[in-house]
Amino acid sequence: MVENRLKRFKAMGCFKLADDLKPHPISELIPPMDGDTYKGFKADIWRHGLIEPIILYQGKILDGKERYRACRELGVDVWAREWEGGMDPVEYVISNNLLRHHKSTQTQLNLFEE
């Protein structure tokens, strides 16, 4: 399973990260996971490894700051790829994270207002 994931990552143009990276300011539009949610998320990465690569933009983490943090804390390899564009990076981050984080309707509206 891990070997298949590595093949998929490489086919997507991913590379293994060695450097410490900071979140891109755009990624900060999405609030961090609460403590219990993060613990469960981190446990899942421990069991299953990194499933989706980190997305980089301008040398920083555009999407995947929680995945990155969990992998670093666990000593799990971090795979990343450059953001390919195709839409505004702010819209990408909001669109890619709202449903995944199960944000309330009010939180979603607040993000769009910002």
Rank of each mutant, 00 (worst) to 15 (best):
L74H: 02
K16R: 15
Y68E: 07
Q106L: 14
G35D: 10
H102P: 01
E52A: 09
R67A: 11
E66G: 09
P25V: 01
E3W: 02
D77Y: 10
L21A: 02
I54W: 01
R69T: 14
E73M: 11
N110R: 12
E113V: 02
W83E: 02
P32C: 03
S95R: 12
S104D: 09
E82R: 09
R72A: 09
G13V: 09
P32R: 04
K60D: 06
N96R: 14
D44A: 13
E114I: 15
M1Y: 10
E82I: 07
H48E: 02
L50T: 04
R72F: 08
H102Q: 11
L109G: 11
N4P: 10
G85Y: 06
G75I: 06
K7D: 13
R81E: 08
P32D: 08
R67V: 12
G85P: 14
G40T: 03
L109Q: 07
A11C: 03
G86D: 05
V2D: 11
P25C: 04
M33L: 15
G75Y: 03
W79N: 06
E73R: 06
N110L: 14
E82W: 06
T105A: 14
Q58C: 07
R47H: 09
K103W: 12
I55C: 08
G13K: 03
L17A: 08
G49M: 04
L56I: 11
P31T: 01
L62R: 00
E84D: 13
I51L: 14
Y57L: 12
L29R: 03
A18M: 08
W83F: 15
I26F: 10
N4H: 14
G35M: 06
P53C: 05
K42I: 01
E28K: 15
Q58R: 15
R67N: 13
R47Q: 07
H24C: 13
L99M: 10
D20R: 05
F112M: 14
N4R: 13
V2P: 01
K60M: 14
K103A: 08
M1I: 05
K60Q: 15
L29S: 00
G49H: 05
E66R: 08
A18H: 13
V76A: 09
L98A: 12
Y57H: 15
P31W: 06
L6S: 01
L111I: 15
I54L: 01
D88V: 07
F112Y: 15
I26D: 00
H24V: 12
D36I: 04
I54N: 01
Q108P: 01
S95H: 06
Y57P: 11
Y68D: 09
F9E: 01
V90E: 09
E52Q: 12
R72K: 15
G59D: 11
P53V: 00
D44P: 00
Y68K: 07
E28Q: 08
G40Q: 06
H48Y: 10
E84K: 15
H24I: 07
R8M: 14
T105H: 08
T37C: 04
G13L: 02
K60R: 15
A11V: 02
E52L: 13
L62D: 01
E91Q: 07
L111M: 15
L6R: 12
P31L: 04
Q106K: 14
A11Q: 08
W46V: 06
Q58S: 13
Q108Y: 00
A43Y: 05
I30A: 11
A11Y: 01
D44M: 04
D63H: 04
G59N: 03
I54S: 04
E73K: 10
V78T: 07
M1K: 13
G49W: 07
K7V: 11
